[in-house]
Every structure is written in C-alpha cells, then in structure tokens.
Design a protein around this nucleic acid. Structure first.
Length: 438
RNA sequence: GCCGGGGUGUGGUAGAGGUAUCCCUUGGGACUGUGGAUCCCAAGACCUGGGUUCGAAUCCCAGCCCCGGCCCCA
C-alpha cells in the first residue's frame, strides 16, 4: 500500500527548496537591517488563543484536537495571535518599540486551490508598542521593500479602519456595536447589497447609505476627496474623525518620504474590533494572474490585541504578514540561484587496480569543496558513465584526473556547456573554478 | 461545504470494450581515456472499491487525490 501525501500539503524538491531558501534569506536580511529580530512560536497552541482573537466560527477552519490529557489544542492558523501571546508572556519588559519578525508554517482546514494550501508559510513583522503613523509607515515600507528586493511587482492599497468605523458610526447613529461590527465585516467582504440592507434596517437614510457605499468604492485622489467630504460637520463625532484623518494623512506623507507608491482604498476593512488604524493589502500586479483567484500576497494593519490575551495595558501594534507561498510563485529568478556544480572524474585504468588516481582525485575534490559544490564518483563508474551523470545533474565543469594527468602534473578541465577542454595545473584549476562561484 | 475538469511506470505520453505505445528513468552486461555515447538484456504503470460484460485503462456508481472556480480568508 502506497502512502499518499495528505491533501493540501506539498513536498518540496531540491529546485523548489533552493528558491524558497533564497527568498527567505533575502526577507530575513532586509528585516534584520531594519532592526527586526526573529522570534519563533510553537506549531500548536491552546485553541482558545485563536477563538479569542477570531471567534468560535474559526474552529471550523482549524486543525483542532484534544491531546491525551484533554487539552483543547489547534495547529496555528496564523501567526499574529501567537506573536502577541509571546509578547504578553515574555517580552513585556523589552524596550519599546519591540520589533520582531517571524517565519513559520500555518495550517487551515479549507479546500485547496491555486495558491491556497492546507499547510502554508507566513513571513511577517510587527512593531509592538506604537501605532503612530511613523510605525505604520515603516511597516508598509518594509513590506514594500522586501517585495522590491525580490523583483516582485505589487499593488499597494492603504486604508484606515479607525476612520472608516467613525464615518460609519456618524452615518448610522442608531447602529448598535454588534451591527457596526457586522457592517465592517460586510465592507471587508465587499458585500454591498447586504450592507445596504443592514444599514436600511438600522434606520439609516438612503442618501447616507449611498454616500457611504460611494466612499468605500472610491480609490486614490478621489477617495481622499470623499473622505474629506464625509468628515465635515458632525458635531461631537467630528473631532474623533479628524484625529483619524490627520493620522492617515501623516501616514501617506511618510509613505511619500519612503518613496512607496500606494492607492488610497477606504474600502479595506476588517471584521474584527481590535483593528484600530491603518490597514493595507498588497496584490499581485498586472493582468497575468499567476495566483488565480488569490491575488493578495500580503496583509497588515494596526491593532490592539494584547489586552485580549491578558495584558494589563492595551499595547498598540502594527504589522504585516506575507503569504510566502504566493510570493514564491511570483518569484521569477529561480534559475539564477543555481550554484555551479563541478564533477571530479577519476579515470581508472581497468587493468590496474591501483589507487593513486583515486588519491589524487580525492585531494583535488577536497580542495575544490572549499570553493564550490563538488561531486566525486562513488560508484566506480567508467568515464562515459561519469560524464553522463555530470550531464544528468547539470554540472558546469568536469575535472578529469587519470594516469596521464598524474604524469604531467596537470588535470583536464572540461566545460560541460561548450564541450571545450584544456589542460592546466591543479592550482590553475582551483583558481578558475573559485572565480566561477563568486 | 458546493460546482466543473482530471488521475496510465519516477516524470511526460498513446490508447474510446479484447490484456498497454513511445520518450525518459532505473538495474545488469559489452566497450582499455572523451562515447554527455552506442549495442544487448532486464525492471517498472492503468488512483481505490464496487457494478455492467465472456472480457474493463476504456462504460456506470461511490470514495480518495490533483487542477481550476465558488464560499471563506483570522
């Protein structure tokens, strides 16, 4: 009976791993340069951590289970909650702002489709302890720079849930908190008809409903005009709205300073009440749609979760998470990452059982391995079989070592792409191949 | 949870009721240092389970998995 891979999971072959490692390394390098430090949390947590954050309904979409002593656990479906928990448990004494990044696998029980798997990876960063526009701007700029360094073109949409919530509240003064959250969820989903219906039944007048729909559909400069229009003249609420607007304007200015191109999108929302400020999303740019229906490659925002997990103070945070697998699909530069391979080919005389050729070959191989990936025959193969193997693993060079070479004190270096070969001393050979891998 | 299209050696394929084609791969052998070959031999597959049929890779049903989409997306 053959054992199959579990639905929605993947095996990664060497070529894919090489690519993923390279992407990960670049992400890490940039995050470190920006002053973020890596943390890691467990693969499973108490299920409560996630239901507290997202509601009971997500149990449906999690891998949740009881362990042998009856603890209710879940494989983590995302990393923001664990990171916040870690902060509350371990890092509250750390100097503010606390800047961390993470990379790990997450699990969701959903139907797999293009760019969506049941085990997937997230790379993210958080600034804990600030929700100032400077922090929000830095987080967006960091995400933007990482994508840029990877050569991935993306479209950045920036919104502000705090502001949107205030505008909605002012437009619908009768709405209960419960209904307000539901309305924000509908904005997030883009379910406009349902939103109209909800606002209507909450007693919001028709003109205000359409104004609000118009606002969340607007983009860019006209969106800013819409926002300004809806701020004006609402008595007590106006003050709160102004504060949010001011924050948003400062954030956008900072993005300009970072030279980050964005589209203002007031319709980005979150259905969860602890999102308080900026929200942003990055989408695959262009019309190619490599990711199919899953265009989003990054999401982030400003939130206050710490109190929910038992912190005395309601620490503000801002952060983002990349869908690592989607980025890997968009990342083009896979071929350029391949390290050149060299194969050392000992040429044995069949009639002679002597090992002097092997000794020389091992010597050269050991020295070459200080500079590049080097293979040496371990199957006592003939020269043609060894060259066939070199070809099969796509090696760049073969270094032939046999009696003749030993006698002349030189080796034969064969370029496997052109078929040209030349004789040179061991020193020259090492020098040539060393330059190759730099 | 729902809808559509699929599943043939490791991978890629042909095959539309009569016991599976080709490429590649793998193992063994021949070939005394250029054959990234060549030659010979061998190995390896119809997703699983039922049904129809004298006979099923092929037709029917169910399941599993893959691809795409819906829903959802913390």
């Amino acid at each position: 009976m053959r054992i199959e891979r579990v639905k929605g999971t993947r095996d990664f072959l060497p070529a894919e791993m090489r690519k993923r490692r390279a992407i990960e390394a670049r992400m890490r390098a940039i995050a470190e340069r920006w002053g973020y430090e890596e943390i890691k949390t467990p693969t499973f947590e108490l299920a409560e951590l996630f239901t507290l954050k997202s509601g009971e309904a997500i149990l449906e979409e999690m891998y949740e289970f009881r362990d042998k002593s009856g603890r209710h656990l879940a494989l983590r479906p995302e990393l923001t909650a664990p990171v916040t928990r870690l902060y509350v448990n371990e890092l509250k004494m750390a100097p503010r702002p606390t800047k961390v990044y993470y990379f790990g696998n997450c699990f969701r029980y959903e139907e797999p489709q293009r760019a969506r798997y049941r085990e997937f990876w997230q790379f993210g960063a958080e600034i804990i302890g600030s929700d100032r526009p400077e922090a929000e701007g830095e987080i967006i700029a960091l995400a933007y720079h990482i994508l840029k360094a990877l050569g991935i073109r993306a479209e950045l949409h920036v919104g502000h849930v705090g502001l949107l919530r205030e505008i909605l509240r002012a437009a619908a003064p009768n709405m209960t908190g419960e209904h307000l959250s539901r309305a924000m969820r509908l904005v997030d989903k883009g379910a406009k008809e349902e939103l109209r219906e909800l606002m209507r039944t909450s007693g919001v007048e028709r003109g205000r409903i359409e104004d609000f729909i118009h606002l969340i559909e607007s983009r860019g400069d006209s969106a800013m005009a819409e926002v300004r229009r809806m701020i004006a003249g609402d008595g007590g609420a106006e003050e709160r709205k102004r504060k949010h607007l001011e924050q948003l304007e400062q954030l956008l200015e900072i993005l300009d300073y970072y030279n980050v191109g964005y589209i203002l999108n007031p319709g980005i929302a979150r259905g969860l009440d602890y999102y308080t400020g900026m929200v942003f999303e990055l989408y695959e740019a262009g019309d190619e749609h490599k990711l199919g229906a899953q265009r989003q490659i990054c999401g982030g925002g400003t939130y206050r979760l710490a109190a929910l997990f038992g912190s005395r103070e309601d620490t503000p945070s801002t952060g983002f998470a990349f869908g690592f697998d989607r980025i890997a699909e968009l990342f083009q530069n896979g071929e350029g990452l391949k390290e050149p391979k060299v194969v050392v080919v000992p040429v044995r005389e069949r009639s002679r059982g002597d090992y002097t050729v092997i000794e020389a070959a091992i010597g050269i191989t050991t020295r070459l391995r200080e500079h590049c990936t080097t293979y040496l025959d371990v199957m006592e193969r003939s020269i043609s079989e060894q060259l066939a193997y070199a070809n099969a693993i796509q090696a760049s060079f073969a270094v032939l070592v046999g009696r003749r070479e030993l006698e002349s004190g030189r080796v034969t270096v064969r370029d496997l792409e052109t078929g040209e070969q030349e004789q040179m001393s061991v020193e020259e050979c090492i020098e040539k191949l060393r330059r190759l891998s730099e």
